[in-house]
Simulated scan of single mutants.
Amino acid sequence: MARKAVRRARVEDVHHLALGMPHVTVYPGTEHKPVYQVGGKSFVFFRNPRPDAYDSETGERYDDVIVFWAPNQGDKLAMVQDDSSPFFTTPHFDGHLSVLLRASRIGEISHNELAEVVQEAWLSRASARRRATWLEEHLTE
């Protein structure tokens, strides 16, 4: 029996997965670097270049950073402390439940892993009622 190849994640998948979650809106005016929200709370967004995320060799600011909310500090640390993980953080995000990922490294994770990250981000920001409804619908499948 042949094993199915793992599909690597792509940037387009972030958009598709985020918009596929219920009650999602894109913050107005962010169409080129979307900020995906649920109930007015951001859960995934494409960040403008900032001084805290840069190439240590050239000093050039990263222009392809995607921010994902993490469910809790333990999950965040597990994602950013694993040396094989493309997820990272910066001192700017100390104490903030989010992780960063460069779009140029998104192919280092699978589509399924990305889907889980987006779903967890949405779940961490959605209202209790919306979260319970989504979990009920998806845990019984």
Rank of each mutant, 00 (worst) to 15 (best):
A2M: 11
R3Q: 14
R3E: 13
R3H: 14
K4M: 06
A5E: 14
A5W: 05
R8W: 03
A9Q: 11
A9M: 08
V11M: 02
E12T: 06
D13M: 03
V14R: 00
V14L: 06
H15W: 01
H15N: 07
L19M: 15
P22Y: 03
H23C: 04
H23V: 05
V24P: 13
V24D: 06
T25N: 10
V26E: 09
V26I: 15
Y27V: 10
Y27N: 05
P28Y: 06
G29Y: 13
T30W: 12
E31T: 12
H32K: 15
V35G: 04
Y36K: 07
Y36D: 07
Q37P: 02
G39D: 04
G39C: 05
G40S: 05
S42N: 13
F45S: 01
R47A: 09
N48L: 09
N48Y: 02
P49I: 05
R50P: 00
R50I: 11
R50M: 09
D52L: 04
A53R: 04
A53E: 03
D55A: 06
S56E: 13
G59C: 06
E60F: 05
E60P: 04
D63T: 14
D63R: 15
D63G: 15
V67H: 02
F68Y: 08
W69K: 05
A70T: 15
N72C: 07
Q73V: 09
Q73G: 03
Q73F: 05
G74N: 05
G74E: 12
D75L: 03
D75Y: 04
K76Y: 05
A78M: 12
M79I: 03
V80P: 11
D82S: 12
D82A: 15
S85G: 14
S85N: 12
S85I: 14
S85F: 12
S85D: 11
P86E: 05
F87T: 10
F87M: 14
F87D: 03
T90Q: 01
H92M: 08
D94T: 10
D94W: 04
D94R: 12
D94H: 07
D94L: 04
D94E: 10
G95S: 10
S98M: 11
L100K: 02
L101R: 09
L101S: 06
L101C: 07
R102V: 03
A103P: 05
A103E: 13
S104D: 08
R105L: 04
R105D: 13
E108Q: 15
S110L: 08
E113D: 12
L114M: 06
A115T: 09
E116K: 13
V118Q: 01
E120I: 02
E120A: 12
A121C: 06
A121K: 07
A121F: 09
W122C: 00
S124I: 02
R125W: 00
A126Y: 02
S127V: 08
A128P: 03
A128W: 00
R130Q: 12
R130T: 07
R131Q: 13
A132H: 05
T133L: 11
W134Q: 01
E137L: 14
E137W: 06
E137V: 10
H138E: 11
T140F: 03
